[in-house]
Design a protein around this nucleic acid. Structure first.
Lengths: 355, 355
DNA sequence: CTGAAAGCGCTAACAC
DNA sequence: GTGTTAGCGCTTTCAG
């Protein structure tokens, strides 16, 4: 029966001071004499004090406003899942006083991006979670957050910067390697592979290049095989070049597989179905409704789940824990590269629904 | 600013009664006049009261002893992960007063199984989580838990019974189908597949037969292919028949892939390495150290993660939530069928370490 | 049957 | 600087 949790009160008694003093040293709030500080630390060193977070959260009794900056979910289905993850987390943490303010931007419009960040900063939040798709533009805003003492977490897109509390995302190089591994069974010398980037401002999409690099390096390392890998930057399907480019691609009988670097694999499959193309391995990303349908129908072999909802949930979780419990999250949390096929998708469905 | 959470105090005020009374009706603890009950319900119907679970847990201030009945982790590496998951959860929930008592049994010895259950029941716990490997033997114990009013959760092994609070595990039929899907690239008519059950009392392993069924049905459904699937019940590697049987299996040049239904794939690979066999697809289960090594080396193509640690953690989580917060978990929680390859294993590692 | 009140562990305002 | 104290929302005991 020794698992009696130690309370602040116990420490106070042992150190011969009051709880107020102990609390002050625990939170480094100053106004403590060297002597008292020493006494308390002496006790703290001996015992393993673990604050009761439940009680802390109750005692704190304050609300946290966090700003969420991300692409408008109405404009791109991928971001719907992030948004849902955030909303889900908002519910989960509302008892500890979480309120999220959303600042959406058009992911093809830098102006709206800047505006979203400006508004978020002007709202003077307690913390922020941001998906910073445009690299260079983000830097001054990060600086601003930092100056204002606003802790912020990046998710989905990694931007090198000294101040973020944490980055939540995936290892994109490894993601590319994985895609190559999944696409490779049956590959032989002379066959060809294609990497498709759809409708992306490539200068701002360093992350897609990481995926490409991983993919290419994996293929290159396959012993005894000589396989051509072509990269194609596709316009959005509205443009006529979309169809022209795909038609050319699929006319090659040596084409073994196509790797789509974003969540837009379904757009390629729609072309394939319309034109009767078939018999080529497809690896793409993310559990969008249309992707799932084509996965079930056998057009898509594998989807790699970037798990936007979990990214969002984890971001909030780390931020709130930092705000409420003063914990420090890891500098970087890389989520698992989940492989989804038509035979395991249903086992992921309940989790999706729950999120 | 309307997100003010409603408190019991508010309800009391609105209903014109005291908080004590409100609490009594909320928890159906009786000793409330019809009139008061009606008044409170009238308010409750109008508003959406969500108790502050944080405060509840603080106010409750009691400890929960839960009994964990599972195979001895010292005798089988698979169960080490379950054990770790439980220990991890114990830490996480210790602030709400969780203490876990462990009752291990030898997974090849029914006598020790019965003893473990008997001791667990005799300890008169507040709740239990159990991995009931032996089907028939478990039933009377379940009955006993039920009679004693002890809520209990099954994990890993599903046993049909009316009383468990929940079952946490995976869909094994689907797991078999998935294995078949993963093993199938390159399959052609005339090729052969093997299903290996290693060192199992098959009568007590209905679950392995579910996997087998899924595997076979997937293969049978592959259009235009005629593939022979053979089931082999292997003894443990200590027995000479282990080697004889494997030698025979691998001598067949038509062998395309081997599906090992348990976490013992590494035992097969050890044989393969020792005898220089190669070039055959291997699908197995679980992230044991040796399995991971052979995955990295390319001997094993895929591992399906049964995620014992997450199973255990989820079991505890559901049980504690039931005990502390009086929530009712779903009758059945089927975890995702996680596909692990040499290219995504590292992305799962941090999660493993964290668990 | 009902209400008042103490207490869970922690925080923070407030006297001294 | 330091100790005391009220209070977070809920549970539970205890008079009445």
């Amino acid at each position: 029966m020794e698992n009696k949790n130690i309370r602040i009160k116990d420490i106070a008694r042992l150190a011969g001071v009051s709880v107020g003093t102990v609390d002050r040293v625990l939170h480094k709030r100053g106004k403590v004499s060297d002597k008292a500080l020493e006494k308390v630390h002496a006790i703290l060193d001996q015992i393993d004090y673990k604050p009761n977070l439940i009680a802390r959260s109750l005692g704190l009794n304050r609300t946290f406003r966090v700003a969420a900056v991300l692409p408008d979910p109405k404009l791109d289905a991928f971001w719907v899942q992030s948004h849902e993850g955030l909303q889900q987390s908002e519910q989960e943490w509302q008892q500890q006083g979480l309120v999220i303010d959303y600042y959406f931007y058009d992911l093809h419009n830098k102006e709206s991006y800047n505006q979203a960040f400006e508004k978020a900063i002007a709202s003077n939040p307690d913390g922020a979670v941001v998906a910073p798709l445009f690299y260079k533009e983000a830097l001054p805003f990060f600086q601003k957050f930092h100056e204002n003492g606003v802790p912020y977490i990046l998710f989905n897109t990694h931007i090198e910067h000294p101040h973020p509390l944490s980055f939540i995302g995936q290892d994109l190089y490894q993601s590319g390697r994985l895609a190559a591994e999944l696409i490779s069974p049956g590959l032989a010398t002379g066959k060809k592979l294609a990497i498709l980037h759809i409708h992306e401002d490539l200068p701002n999409s360093a992350h897609l290049l990481d995926k490409e690099k991983g993919f290419r390096e994996y293929v290159a390392s396959m012993s005894g095989l000589n396989v051509e890998v072509n990269t194609i930057n596709l316009e959005a399907p509205e443009n006529t070049s979309f169809e022209t480019d795909l038609r050319k691609l699929f006319s090659d009988p040596q084409l073994h597989g196509v790797y789509i670097s974003t969540s837009k694999a379904y757009q390629v499959v729609e072309f394939m179905k319309a034109t009767g193309k078939n018999g080529c391995r497809i690896v793409g990303y993310d559990l969008l409704e249309k992707n799932l349908q084509f996965l079930k129908e056998g057009y898509i072999n594998f989807l790699i789940n970037q798990n936007p909802s979990k990214q969002a949930a984890l971001s909030i979780s780390h931020l709130i824990n930092h705000l409420v419990f003063k914990t420090t999250p890891p500098k970087e949390a890389l989520l698992p590269l989940e492989i989804i096929t038509k035979e395991n998708i249903d086992s992921y469905k309940p989790a999706l629904a729950a999120q």
